[in-house]
């Protein structure tokens, strides 16, 4: 219900002000005043709203998976360097293609390749984090390692940008601002299937996620095949975070904040409830952030990444202050 409301609000507001009645008429196939409005709504705002829903729910879900897998309340695609990994993959494709011109540049800069590269980058970081996590039991150390990965990828990206041309650099910088607005319907279909795969894998992991709340040894004693379920969860996280980062750029805090918010609201740790709830709240939060980013009635659009940080960071701080400690 809230989701539908936010969806309506999101497509009603934008740089060009279109009356509510006309928005609804356009969706429902009725008559509207201007033909261009119909075009704006169908080819720009609705895909954008769908993208926001997919991005928000996907990121929130990957955050939930990681928090449970690492048994760490601070885990999230952004904090553990997963998004940095995806950024590195994207940077290599966008900017690297001009460096290693010839073989690589040929037909490489399309979206599918970008998505694969970003997913691959995030997988790589996730796997390294997993290996480190099995050796280092200290969660604090793990987070610092995640930050270090962020630094390393940032360093590689700056080396790349030093050598690349201005046009490619600008393309990358825009990508790193994050945006849910640039997707065409076919791209949207691709993103949808990526997210759906991620959701299916997560739903299959619900039981082992619940068992993991006890700890790994207990989970094993409950008959959970740890190796298999760990890989399932990692693949789901990698696909979700990587795919989304490829299409919408690195978007901060949704993955971290939404699972905490959802646990507070539903007062449960049961993943049969948390998984769908997190998907919904992620979508709602993302739609709201995007609506704010559009700065309704003005011609400017703010980078969505900035808005999610401005909204997400205070939520995390508020949760910490209210509860005094982060319980997950």
């Amino acid at each position: 219900m809230v989701l539908v409301l936010c969806f309506g609000l999101n497509i009603s507001l934008g740089s060009v002000s279109i009356p509510f009645s006309d928005t609804w008429n356009s969706i429902l196939g009725g008559n509207i005043e201007k033909e261009s409005w119909h075009y704006i709504i169908w080819d720009y705002r609705i895909p954008k709203a769908f993208t926001a829903i997919l991005v928000g729910s996907g990121l929130a879900l990957s955050g939930l998976l990681m928090q449970t897998l690492f048994r760490n309340p601070l885990a999230g695609p952004f904090v553990l360097g997963i998004s940095s990994g995806a950024s590195l993959g994207a940077a290599l494709i966008i900017m690297g293609s001009s460096l290693f011109s010839g073989v690589l540049a040929f037909g490489f800069a399309n979206d599918v390749v970008l998505a694969i590269a970003a997913s691959f980058g995030s997988f790589l970081v996730l796997l390294v984090v997993m290996v480190v996590a099995s050796k280092v039991k200290d969660t604090m150390a793990l987070l610092i390692i995640g930050l270090m990965f962020g630094s390393i990828t940032a360093a590689i990206v700056s080396v790349l940008s030093y050598f690349t041309n201005a046009e490619k650099l600008q393309q990358y910088v825009y990508w790193s601002f994050g945006s849910v607005g640039n997707l065409s319907w076919p791209q949207l279909a691709l993103l949808t299937s990526i997210i759906l795969i991620g959701i299916v894998l997560s739903v299959l992991s619900i039981k082992s996620l619940n068992a993991l709340l006890l700890g790994e040894n207990y989970a094993r004693s409950l008959g959970v095949d740890m190796k298999k379920s760990r890989y399932l969860i990692i693949i789901a996280t990698g696909i979700l975070a990587g795919g989304i980062t490829a299409f919408a750029g690195p978007i901060a805090f949704v993955g971290l904040a939404v699972p905490h918010l959802t646990r507070q609201i539903f007062k449960t740790t049961d993943h049969t409830i948390l998984v769908p709830a997190v998907l919904m709240y992620g979508a709602v939060l993302m739609l709201l952030c995007d609506t704010i980013a559009q700065l309704p009635t003005s011609a400017n659009v703010l980078p969505i990444n900035a808005i999610t940080s401005i909204v997400g960071a205070p939520i995390v701080i508020w949760l910490l202050v209210r509860k005094r400690k982060m319980i997950f």
Partner: peptide, 13 residues
């Protein structure tokens, strides 16, 4: 099993 290791999540009911 009932082990000595702490629970991963103490937020469960």
């Amino acid at each position: 099993l009932v082990l000595t290791e702490p629970l991963a999540s103490k937020n469960m009911t």
